[in-house]
């Protein structure tokens, strides 16, 4: 498997619509960064919308790995993924 795990990715409709993606994807990747790169290969510009030049996940983007929001973690992109994980990429609900 070369450190890769089979996971499911659920993409919020706003991203799916913008990047013409299916809302549910299955892929084999090792980390969150690999996952984003994988989607970038399908939809140019996706990576730039998820994290900035410094590798920081954008303020209004939430990435959940198995229910845990990893967006504000240091080194969030290197979060390892394991077989059966579900990853959700959603915009945050902001405002009052």
């Amino acid at each position: 498997m070369d450190g890769k795990s089979k996971i499911k990715v659920f993409v919020a409709s706003i991203f799916a619509k913008e990047f013409k993606l299916s809302r549910e994807l299955t892929m084999e990747v090792g980390t969150v960064e690999d996952l984003v790169s994988n989607i970038e290969n399908m939809a140019s510009g996706f990576r730039d919308s998820i994290y900035d030049e410094t590798g920081t996940i954008r303020p209004y983007v939430n990435v959940f790995v198995d229910g845990a929001n990893i967006s504000s973690r240091e080194d969030a992109l290197n979060t390892p993924l394991k077989d059966g994980d579900s990853v959700y990429i959603f915009p945050s609900v902001a405002g009052g």
Partner: peptide, 8 residues
């Protein structure tokens, strides 16, 4: 120049 909260 558009500053989006979803894709930067």
């Amino acid at each position: 120049g558009v500053n989006t909260w979803t894709w930067g």
